[in-house]
Each structure stands twice: as structure tokens, then as C-alpha cells.
């Protein structure tokens, strides 16, 4: 497909990227391109300028923090999350879930930053990052600000990252005795999620986050027991979409099932 004409810049520093994004109306960051190029092909959006983040080295790093948490640059790919020993040691759920995204080729290009900034409601990573209580760091003309993951997702394809801004990194707190789990029902093995759930269990309490049932991830807390989790999901008044892959009723049912499975995987009692 021939795309509409577009400008391209490949800055070498975050400040330069922010300047380019601020100076050009209709400038958009380009990460792995696995969503934005399809959006451009479909003429659903027509950015004037793509600001390629590929050369921003500080966005490519994974580092463990002194307290046992993780700092992940926005340009880290899904494939890198899968193989990272730091991820495996600190919050293994992230690598386990990244391994379920699409296929080898998409994982080799698609980034964690692009996955959350596109906030497709069926994406795998937004619920995980809300469940673990991640912090998103956003750079803009006035410097950096931190946004908790649970306030980051604002709507379909809409996040706290404003025009002229850039998500630079995501900080995950240490497990500190907690355990994480994830469960989904997908279209084919490792396909698009019909409903997914991430859970983090600390002591007797579960943080459960549901994906695909609303425009943004839905956060619930419940005692970490099968019945209590199902009841919390049941009582949440979910209004999930109906489509060819599942009716709203079916998704409501699946939401209870995958929530309970995610909590069980995180060691919550049955």
C-alpha cells in the first residue's frame, strides 16, 4: 500500500524528539510501527511527521532497581521482554505475557511503549501493568512527569501522553512477596484476546485487572479466593462490547473465568 506523504525524523536525544513532536502539528512518535503503519494504511489517521524513536538509546534499556523492581525503556520490544533475565528475576509475568503476543515477527518489532500508547483494548500489556502497579514516565517540553498505570489509560487509543509528549520508561515495583498471574481466552493460540485478566496477589488480597471488556483496563480488588473474585467481577456491572468473536454476555462470563484463573495462577486460594 502506498501511504500518504509523510515527514520522517530520527532524533538522537529525547529533548530533540520532544521538540520535533511539539513543533509539528500532527507529528506522532514511531516505535515498532506494528500499529501506526496499519492505521496509516487504512487512512484512519494521517500523521504529518513520524518521529522515529529508534535511536533513543535510553529508551532501549531494561534495568533492575536497587529494591528489586524494574525500569523498562519504552522502546524495549516484546521479544526482548521474553528473553530478559532481569524481567525473569523481578516480574516474570511480563515476559510470560509478552511471549503470547501475536507472533515472532510482531514481537521482534512491537514495543512495550507502543503497546500501551496504542491502548487497543485487546492488547496484552495494559492490564498487566495496571495490576503490578507500574509507573509511567512521560517526557514533555517541561521535563518529566510520572503517572500511575491505573490513571494512564484514558480511552481507546487515548492515554495520558499528550501531544508533544513521549512515554520514556515504565517502572515496575518489586514483587516484595506478591505474586502475579495472567489468563486469557484468545482467537486461536496466542491470538488476539477476547477477554484477558492480570492479577497481583499480596497476602489475602488480589488486584485483578480485566482487558477487552471496556475502553480501558478495569481494576477491581477482592479477597484472593475463587468465589470472591468471581463475585467482584459479577458485581462490577461490566458492559463489554459484542462482536463476531463473542457476545457481551459471553465476555461477561469469560471475565469471571479468566479473573479467577489469573488469581489462581498468582497463588490465590480456590
Amino acid at each position: 500500500m502506498l501511504l500518504s506523504e509523510v515527514g520522517y525524523a530520527r532524533p538522537a536525544a529525547v529533548e530533540e524528539a520532544v521538540r520535533l513532536l511539539a513543533e509539528h502539528d500532527g507529528a506522532r512518535p514511531l516505535a515498532g510501527g506494528q500499529t501506526i503503519l496499519n492505521v496509516m494504511k487504512a487512512r484512519a489517521a494521517a500523521p504529518d511527521v513520524l518521529v522515529d524513536l529508534a535511536d533513543l538509546e535510553e529508551l532501549r534499556a531494561i534495568a533492575s532497581t536497587d529494591d528489586g523492581g524494574l525500569v523498562i525503556g519504552a522502546m524495549v520490544t516484546s521479544a526482548e521482554l521474553v528473553t530478559s533475565s532481569d524481567v525473569k528475576a523481578a516480574r516474570p509475568v511480563l515476559g510470560d505475557v509478552a511471549a503470547q503476543i501475536a507472533d515472532v515477527q510482531v514481537r521482534n518489532r512491537g514495543t512495550i511503549g507502543g503497546n500501551v500508547c496504542s491502548n487497543d483494548p485487546t492488547n496484552h500489556l495494559p492490564p498487566v501493568l495496571v495490576a503490578v502497579g507500574a509507573t509511567m514516565t512521560i517526557a514533555g517540553a517541561d521535563g518529566e512527569r510520572d503517572v500511575p498505570a491505573e490513571e494512564f489509560f484514558l480511552g481507546v487509543y487515548m492515554t495520558a501522553v499528550g501531544l508533544g509528549e513521549l512515554l520514556t520508561r515504565i517502572t515496575l515495583p518489586p514483587l516484595a512477596g506478591a505474586r502475579d498471574g495472567f489468563s486469557s481466552v484468545t482467537i486461536g493460540a496466542d491470538g488476539t484476546c477476547i477477554v484477558n485478566a492480570a492479577a497481583t496477589v499480596s497476602g489475602d488480597e488480589a488486584r485483578v485487572v480485566l482487558g477487552c471488556v471496556a475502553a480501558t483496563p478495569v481494576l477491581l480488588t477482592a479477597p484472593a479466593e475463587d468465589d470472591a473474585v468471581r463475585e467482584a467481577v459479577h458485581g462490577a456491572g461490566l458492559e463489554p462490547p459484542s462482536d463476531v468473536h463473542g457476545s457481551a454476555d459471553y465476555r461477561r462470563h469469560l471475565a469471571e473465568v479468566v479473573a479467577a484463573r489469573a488469581v489462581a495462577e498468582a497463588g490465590g486460594g480456590g
Binding site: 514511531l30 510501527g33 503503519l37 513520524l50 518489532r109
Partner: peptide, 10 residues
């Protein structure tokens, strides 16, 4: 990679 999902300039 899928070459329909990359720009040549990338």
C-alpha cells in the same frame, strides 16, 4: 520481521 510493517527509511 514483516516487511510490509516497516518503512524503508527505518
Amino acid at each position: 520481521v514483516k516487511s510490509c510493517m516497516l518503512l524503508a527509511v527505518q
